[in-house]
Nucleic acid binder design. Structure first.
Length: 396
DNA sequence: TCTGGGGTCCTAGGACCC
DNA sequence: TCTGGGGTCCTAGGACCC
């Protein structure tokens, strides 16, 4: 089954502030991160500009995101998931696949399990959950969406193709704007039409991966299993900069702040990584990335900063020419394993000690209690709390 | 008053190795 | 002078998801 909290951020806000219940609510500032169902009735949806939302519904209530509240709610929801099935594959803060095969004797039919899951999330966390039940992941995922809001949708065994074939291709999980466009231009509008052509043909039109995947899905041969305990592969942070012209010093300040945040999160989570990727979005919104791989895994601010700065320096001529609207920094090639093995003597002792001291201060007094002076070079807007950062709001 | 922030996976070319 | 097949790692870009 696929379980998904309805309008997650907005539902948490309505749960915590009764005056918001029944009202159109939007979470986010410049961009809508979540919209309550009341807001969706006006045509408001995630990713939309905040001004646009207000134009569609002038009385919409805009709430600033409270990251720690969502993190806590997510944790509580996942506790219910884990109480329901031993095999849970999380897909972000608010949704997961649950493998409930072979649980009939203990827990009842999948539909009974789904209804109980919804009831428990409602009672224990106070949030509305929708659940899709089917014999494959892709169908369960589609079914949970059609179950919304606040419902269950079971695709009966044997009825998969009947459910699947009339669907428009863009309803499939994994078919986004680019593939939809391509399929439409080739005359494919429904999943049933995809099922009518050979896999080879889909592969030659869409490439190996997408072709095979769509052939499998259209014929109800989705082979994917629910995979519990997937490991994280990257840690990153990014910052949109608007359209203003930015000086090299400002960009350096942004990179510094990004490195500071990313490396801090890495140390807190016990990760070290080898590949540093700098992402740049130009003024025309095209994107490039530049990466550098170091010999040994690190989580040291100084080491990652050195790599990031060299990447920025190399990108600077193009940035000068094209203008920049976003900088991002992500560390890949993460080294897992026990945290106490990660502080290897790769990085010089002094900078490691400094990182540890700063981490401690932030742990005690809040993330923003210590800031690098150089990071103040970009002072045009207050540092927004990161919704995904633990600890924000707890000690401040 | 256009376009946030955090991720995963796949492809493809080149370097390098056996 | 030309020629195989298999593999890994790194870099860059693209599509997609929540």
């Amino acid at each position: 089954m696929h379980a998904d909290v309805d309008a997650f951020f907005a539902s948490v806000e309505q749960r915590d502030d009764p005056s918001l219940r029944g009202k159109p609510v939007v979470v986010g500032g410049g961009v809508v991160m979540a919209a309550s169902y009341e807001a969706r009735a006006f045509g408001i949806h995630g990713g939309m500009g905040g001004w646009q939302a207000r134009r569609l519904c002038p009385r919409v209530v805009v709430v600033f995101p409270r990251g720690s509240a969502y993190a806590e709610a997510s944790k509580a929801v996942f506790e219910v998931f884990h109480d329901t099935s031993p095999v849970v594959e999380g897909m972000g803060l608010e949704e997961a696949f649950l493998d409930v095969r072979g649980m009939g004797r203990m827990a009842g039919t999948p539909e009974e399990i789904a209804r109980r899951l919804r009831r428990m999330v409602r009672e224990r966390v106070g949030l509305p959950l929708s659940v899709g039940v089917a014999s494959t992941k892709v169908l369960a995922k589609i079914a949970s969406r059609s179950a919304k809001p606040d419902g269950v949708h079971v695709v009966p065994a044997g009825g998969e193709l009947e459910f699947l074939h009339p669907l428009p291709v863009e309803r499939l999980w994994g078919v986004g704007p680019a593939t939809t466009e391509k399929l439409h231009s080739l005359g494919f509008m429904t999943v049933g039409q995809l099922a009518a052509v050979a896999e080879d043909e889909l592969v030659s039109m869409l490439g190996r991966h997408t072709g095979r995947q769509l052939a499998a899905i259209a014929n109800n041969r989705d082979p994917r299993r629910v995979r519990a305990g997937r490991r994280r592969r990257s840690i990153g942070s990014q910052r949109a900069l608007g359209r203003k012209k930015r000086s090299p010093a400002e960009l350096d300040a942004v990179v510094l702040a990004l490195v500071d945040r990313v490396s801090g999160r890495m140390r807190a989570a016990g990760f070290a990584g080898r590949t540093v990727v700098l992402r740049v979005r130009y003024r025309d919104f095209t994107r490039i990335s530049r990466s550098r791989t170091v010999a040994r895994p690190t989580a040291a601010t100084a080491t990652i900063l050195e790599a990031a700065r060299s990447l920025l320096a190399a990108a600077l001529p193009d940035i000068e020419r094209q203008g920049v609207t976003l900088l991002g920094l992500t560390v890949y090639n993460l080294d897992f394993g026990p945290g106490d093995q990660l502080a290897l003597p790769v990085d010089d002792a002094e900078s490691t000690a400094l990182d540890a001291a700063i981490d401690d201060v932030r742990e005690l007094f809040g993330t923003r209690s210590v800031t690098r002076a150089a990071a103040l070079a970009l002072n045009d807007r207050p540092e927004a709390p990161n919704p995904f950062e633990e600890g924000v709001g707890r000690r401040e």
